[in-house]
């Protein structure tokens, strides 16, 4: 059986890893390649590098950094941020990324998902969705959470799958940065609805939060940033605790 994955997410700005609370008040925490190497050694199953400045400031993605990450780490990694065309994806693939994630640009033009998937395969395409719950309805946002769209989360996730997404990375903007647990019930619903893997993101504060989203939330992977970056939850201990709680993880 495929193991549940633990994925540290590294938000990168100018080659440095940063992590904000609700995407504001960014603060630097470390070197992108060095942290990736350390996470891989600690037992992270995969890494996600997001160029958070790319969409907001229209900056180009970080190909050179991706090249160094690919040379340095021995586990798969996904890169995202500002991927707006098949050529962006091609450049990152060539630099050594195992997967790319698309977010705002896929909402602006959903055919981007199918065009990348047809050329490089679904396993290469992660569709990232940032959504917040407004009057009981989960609505997608773009541009790092700053713009609310009319798109509804579940219908968009289904469309992304139909267009060839290989995975869905859903971040609850309501939970992100709170360290109060993931949006478990939303992941469970996504997982029942879709046949592709779901990556949970936003809200991890303790081992129990991660255990819950991987079991009751039926997520295939749990992604987190601050609890890993600041050393609150070291990955080796986390994975041993999950294993002891009968979660199938790679030790």
């Amino acid at each position: 059986m495929v193991a549940k994955r633990i994925i540290p997410c590294l938000d990168v700005k100018d080659g440095q890893v940063v992590k904000g609370i609700n995407f504001e008040g960014l603060r630097e925490v470390g070197d992108a390649v060095g942290m990736g190497v350390q996470y891989a050694a600690d037992g992270a199953d995969e890494l996600v590098y997001l160029d958070i400045s790319a969409t907001r400031e229209g900056r180009n993605t970080f190909t050179q950094l991706v090249r160094r990450i690919a040379a340095g780490i021995n586990i798969p990694f996904t890169v995202g941020g500002g991927i707006a065309a098949v050529e962006d994806a091609a450049r990152l693939l060539e630099a050594g990324a195992d997967k790319i994630s698309v977010n705002s640009a896929a909402i602006a033009d959903p055919s981007l998902i199918s065009r990348i998937a047809e050329k490089y395969g679904s396993q290469f395409v992660v569709v990232a969705i940032d959504a917040k719950c407004i009057d009981g309805q989960w609505r997608c946002t773009t541009h790092g959470g700053s713009r609310l769209t009319g798109l509804e989360l579940f219908s968009w996730a289904l469309e992304a799958q139909e267009r060839g997404a290989g995975e869905i990375l859903f971040t609850s903007m309501d939970h992100d940065g709170t360290c109060a647990g993931y949006a478990d019930e939303v992941y469970a619903r996504l997982s029942d609805m879709l046949s592709i893997p779901i990556i949970a993101s936003g809200g991890a504060g303790c081992v129990e939060d991660i255990r819950r989203v991987l079991t009751e939330g039926r997520a295939d992977a749990a992604l987190a940033a601050s609890i890993f970056h600041y050393g609150q939850i070291p990955i080796p201990g986390l994975k041993r605790a999950l294993k002891a709680a009968n979660v199938n993880v790679r030790l």
């Binding site: 495929v2 994955r5 199953d45 290989g166 893997p197």
Partner: peptide, 15 residues
């Protein structure tokens, strides 16, 4: 063959 328990592609860490 895709089943509810076995997503295709088989992607990730397995023993």
């Amino acid at each position: 063959v895709e089943t509810p328990d076995a997503k295709v592609p088989h992607m990730g860490w397995n023993s």
